[in-house]
Amino acid sequence: MAETTYGVGIGWRPEIAGFVEELPGLRFAEVVAESVHAHGELPPGLQVLLDRGVTVIPHGVRLSLGGAELVDADRVEHFAAVASRLGAPLVSEHIAFVRAGGIEAGHLLPLPRTREAVDAVVSNVRRVQSSLPVPIALEPIAALFDWPDDELTEAQFLTEILDRSGARLLLDVANVYANARNRGTDPLDLLDELPLERVAYVHVAGGAEHQGLYHDTHTDAVPQPVLDLVAELCARRRPPALMLERDGDYPPATVLAAELDAIAKASGFPAVT
């Protein structure tokens, strides 16, 4: 996506399909890859976007690229088929694992920041890349806990994975904010250490604090410090695209529109509403 600038987009979900369809300036959206049929009809709202020429990026959530076991071939095949189906210029997944020993965790889990974990991710990413028609961007997750045996800093861990796999970076500023806040570190330090020239696009999402920990919920409003971080990121190097991720407790259309406008303002891109 380096050559094209997409501006502000949104995560497409069936519950807000009507709202997304009505956004006049929208040029890109993201859809959860596992929710799309590889060959059958697309959900109506999504087909309308494609017909309009909106770029739709498949975002995988269940490949478990950070799992010590090999990534599942059927899942990779589906992921690649969805990318072709949508005509996407790029796909994305997470630097995380979601299952182990035959048990589904039900959520994205953090990896130990070790060389063994880097090897596992890189090997799985290469396997996926060999089946994909387009490049992949990898997203570092928000973690409520860390492993006890870290060998690398977060920036070293991520940079090594990107360098060795050749993948692009899907940077989630809300995850950067959540991790820094929960670890008591400065989110700007991570921005300064990451290879921002590799950012394919950016996630922005809301969260809330419970019992002293910040949870990246995607069901709450985007807090001002996350928008401030968008501005800080764009001051360093503006990514080609940024998008709002909302996954439930959907607010009225006016509130969602205001969040998109706030992201546009913080990044300096034109409003899409």
């Binding site: 010590a68 182990a100 020993g101 048990i103 965790a105 974990a117 006890p148 045996d149």
Partner: peptide, 18 residues
């Protein structure tokens, strides 16, 4: 969990969590 393979560590973590 030092000294164990990543696969074993991940399996133990998921089992503990779920």
């Amino acid at each position: 969990m030092t000294g164990r393979s990543l696969a074993d560590q991940q399996a133990a973590l998921v089992e503990a969590l779920t």
